[in-house]
Design a binder for these strands. Sequence first.
DNA 1: TCTGGGGTCCTAGGACCC
DNA 2: TCTGGGGTCCTAGGACCC
Length: 421
Amino acid sequence: MPPLLALVDCNNFYASCERVFNPKLEGKPVIVLSNNDGCVVARSNEAKALGIAMGVPEFHIRDLIYRHKVQVFSSNYALYGDMSQRVMQTLEQFSPAVEVYSIDEAFLSLSGLPQRNPTAYGHTIRKTVKQWTGIPVSVGIAESKTLAKVANYLAKRSPHAAGVFDLSAETNPQRILSQIPVEKVWGVGPGTTRLLKAHGIETAWDLREADEHWIRKHLGIVGLRTVQELRARSCLPLEQCPPPKQGIMVSRSFGHPVESLAEMQEAVATYTSRAAEKLREVHLAATVLMVFLETNPFTDEPQYNNVSTIELPVATDTSHELIRHALQGIKTIYRAGYRYKKAGVKLAGLVPVSHIQADLFDSQDRGRAKRLMQALDRINDRMGAGTLQYAAAGLNPRWKAKFARRSQAYTTNWKHLPQVQ
DNA sequence: TCTGGGGTCCTAGGACCC
DNA sequence: TCTGGGGTCCTAGGACCC
């Protein structure tokens, strides 16, 4: 018996989150912007109908926003993260094996469940999530992850589906898959699409029927897996426990171009401090720190990008130690005379804190640093992020990203609880 | 004026070794 | 005239995803 999987995907997730706490937005076009209020990252159906594309810069569509009274929000990750958790907890009710694939999607194993009608089960899932969280979802059901993605695509678009589509029940897969453009298949990006179309492979069905040797040669084993999955042979297993993290990254575009080393160092100190917090949340320590800076590629100003990679003498999760290395690194790659747009920090070579290999010549008092970090995290957790911060991060920075239209932290901050009138 | 952030995985090619 | 070959490890960069 092949496995049976459901992909549950939240519809227009960020826009839907905004709606849950602001019902006046119902029926209106809503968009959510990326960090720094840059690009569109979520659109309600009404906004999609206006032709607002994913990823388009906000300033390109300002006219459209004004004319159609589009409701615009800065992204509010505290809210979306919390809503995501509620949705995922609800989904746990419906399957013993759930893989949380992203902030707004999860794969559920439906194999071996007592119910005989997957479509009806899908509708129950949909209804329950909507009732418990306010978030609308679509459910795609099939024998592999890639086909479940296809089924989900159909669940959203097919008028008869009403949000649930079971591809495994289809008697004529050719009829269905021939309607799916190949670029909509999971794992087929712009580069692969170009290649496939040049060889007459236009639809998901064409890809499914493609020659294996040709696929292996031109698309590698990743492409071959996609083809197998389209043939209902599952190659991508359900991952119930997330694999250990490979790296932790914090990077931001600046609200204003940064030119001085002093400002750049403030930004880098801030990002490193946040990265160190993330590191401690998952009980890992870093052995490698990378810091990078970039100018704005959309301008015709002189361009300069660079990365500095630092091998840390001892694995660490201590903020001030990481900040010290990051400041050192940024100083070596900073060049005066450029207008920088973005900088970031990546922590890599991650090891569990319990496995830290002490260096014979390590001069730090590790126990003291650990107690200090615990106190810091506790205070920031209880009193709000940023209550305590490092002096190196600066006070009142000009470079901070913009979030001019952020909604309130309805679910994670008592001061922002929605009012009932 | 204004163009996101955080990830994963694979592959090609160089360095090195015997 | 002759100037190997094959394995392994590492890294940079590409492709893709949400």
